[in-house]
Design a binder for these strands. Sequence first.
RNA 1: GGGCUCUUAGCUCAGCUGGUUCAGAGCACCUGCCUUACAAGCAGGGGGUCACUGGUUCGAACCCAGUAGGGCCCACCA
Length: 876
Amino acid sequence: MEIPSKYNPQSTESHWYEYWMENGYFHSVPDEREPYSIVIPPPNVTGVLHMGHMLNNTLQDVLIRRARILGKNACWVAGTDHASIATEAKVVAKLKEQGISKNDLTRDEFLKHAWDWTHQYGGIILEQLKKLGCSCDWDRTAFTMDKERYDSVIKVFVDLYNKGLIYRGYRMVNWDPEAQTTLSDEEVIYEEKQGLLYYLAYPIEGSDENVTIATTRPETILGDTAICINPNDERFKHLKGKNVIVPICNRVIPIIEDDYVDMEFGTGCLKVTPAHDINDKALGEKHNLETIDIFNDDATLNSYGLHYQGKDRFVVRKEISKELEANGFLVKMENYVNKVGTSERTKAVIEPKLSDQWFLKMEDLVKPALEAVMDSGEVKLHPKKFENTYRHWMENVRDWNISRQLWWGQQIPAFYYGDGQDDFVVSATDEDALALAKSKSGNPHLKLDALRQDADVLDTWFSSWLWPISVFGGILEPDNKEINYYYPTNDLVTGPDILFFWVARMIVAGYEFRNKKPFENVYFTGLVRDKQRRKMSKSLGNSPDALKLIDDYGADGVRVGLLLSSAAGNDLMFDEDLCQQGKNFANKIWNGFRLIKGWEVSDIPQPEASKLGLEWYETKLNKTVLEIDDHFNKFRISDALMAVYKLVRDDYSSWLLEIIKPAYQQPIDKETFDRVIQLFEQNLILLHPFMPFLTEEVWQHISKRSPEEALVIAKWPTEGAIDAMLLTQFEFTAEVIAGVRTIRKEKNIPMKESLELSVLNTEDVDKDWDVIISKLTNISTITYIDAPLEGALTFRVKSNEYFVPMDGAIDIETEILKIKAELKYTEGFLLSVRKKLSNERFVNNAPEQVIAIERKKQADAEAKIDTLEKSLASLS
RNA sequence: GGGCUCUUAGCUCAGCUGGUUCAGAGCACCUGCCUUACAAGCAGGGGGUCACUGGUUCGAACCCAGUAGGGCCCACCA
């Protein structure tokens, strides 16, 4: 059978993915095994795979595949999020392209468009995850708006309402004038923007005097209902109790006093606009001020805007400042940088706005979730530093605005039967709502069609916070077999940007609805950035096409590329070269397989070198397995990969294969062959979580396997013995080999030309390793000698001295210089060790073991100096 | 403004309890090799004042304090 020398991922990846699917390896049902479950952070239903998803899902796949190989019942639940505001915005934009305005559609018509869109694009990202190799249980694929998840959300809403935790309130909320909906505090991004600070003069009623205030938003003067000064401010003492006249609209408003006002800022005098600023709202309530809302929902001015009515707030800002200037009210303008809240989704500048919204009381809900992370450690965050951030948010949490003025989402199950503030009932079904309404209103003749359901939908996160529960049906059927088996899930992998949006709220929901944590570990990935440290984004165009990367480097190559430098919580500077490294590594393994496959096996005795080499590699592998397990336990995934990478590339390929490789066209003995295949298979198992396709391909090529023997469900190596002596001896041997190779290189002696080696042996070296030295360096004989050899190049390992006899002139001067340099270094080293050992306080205070090590260092150095001095003497 | 965190080789980062020759890895770089598995490779090599200043200690990249400079999160100063 001819095996190509280049591994070709394209031809194998889809094949093995189909094979895995056909055999149902990813599907999980509860059984007697230990469960291991992960729920996917559901990507937006209409999204496409980007680098963040790639990283995130690769990590999850590594974890789930390893769990599967460890023999656990691994279940990775896939699904998508309806992403109400993002999806609705996309649908609105698409309709607009077709000349359809959302306002011309009924709710049902709009929802039909949204569902069409969802069905058209909803599966794309999941198909892309399959290309990446993700071993999700696709039979469980869920959607935050499917029937079960929808009903779960409604049930939870009703439940929380009945517990008194959900309330309706007229509050100042963050208004996105573009999407025309409210946002939660978390959805507002504050950005520094260069603006102007306008100093405006307000005439004082019944006087020629003015009072000057500073504002960044001159257009809001039309909504002013007071001027506020600090009661301790001597400068304004004379203004107490007076009124001022608002320029342009000529309204008379009072001057009030409150020590909220910072005397140092601006003029020390503040205009109060209760409808458009959260602090002014508080002041307004405290001082019983009128509230004048000057904006429409799209942030154009309403009738309070007078001649500016219908114009956008930013247009008005420019125009009104001109008008103020023209009329002498504008004292001056200053450049000023202030923080402006913008919508996470639409980027529109947020307008604080008073409106009726639904809120969830958070204070008590949050308590068990805070404790779970900070006190009991039931939920662990990786890296740990996020615990502080988490605590801070949890301790300062505010009520969650859960209503959105959108159509795409779970419609709030509140039904109004009258026009009063409290003329509504909350219920999961119409019939119950009617019954409740009848009794609450005292009107037994109320009809169903007289009930009007709240038009708002719930915040997307109000459905995704239930995800680890709702995907197992744990809300609707709290005692079902699945939820009892898979919940709590084990690990969650996500980005720190949704710590508050999602992770914290899931923990809250877990304790509230299951009385149990939703997961044990949260692994936060970093942001994927480009080489210049810029965030990857569509607008910058610096995000590579995920699928093209897979085409170019293979899914395995991309996975390795992403994992190689992605310590938890650290941003990842993505560089395609890393994928190339991954691809190269895949090819390396492929060729390792090719080499073995090409050997002819014969019934001949096993060479000593092979026997020893195999023994050493087995120990090395056992040691590495321990390291890898340790890395995994600490979520150091890239370290785990690096450990396998080095094991396979350095120890296995460069050392073991070279040690056992038969001479050209010679057969290999059966014992070595069988053993090396077993060890190679162990390598493949260790590699499989990281590079699932390549390893399965090679695994199946090594021998014909039944579906029960597929690599995807192989068994992780169990702990084996580690022979420390073998490892030490190997390292010593490797140094000797490197010494000979260096001489070859320096003197340009080709590998074909065999050399001799003499050893002045003062170390207690096991001569068994000589066969390996000979083989790897083409040394014909190794001789043990008592005195330095003349006419030879030398090198030293520990206190052993090695001589390679050389025809022709040896540059004695150079040799002497080399030895002198080595001597100088060693003497310096010895000096520092001696100094340490002669320090009484060190000897008295340091642990025994540390002192023993120092003594050993001293003895080694002394022996080495002895060797060096003898060589020097023999040369001169 | 508050909190957290980081600064180690050209780049990205390890360095876990202060103690092995502890100053590391991968990549990049330099040199030599198309050696019969792999040039997507092999072998060899150079490279760091561990940000700075002090302190604690027998001993500090590691602990403490301060300084400088990044990053993240939170916060209503108009």
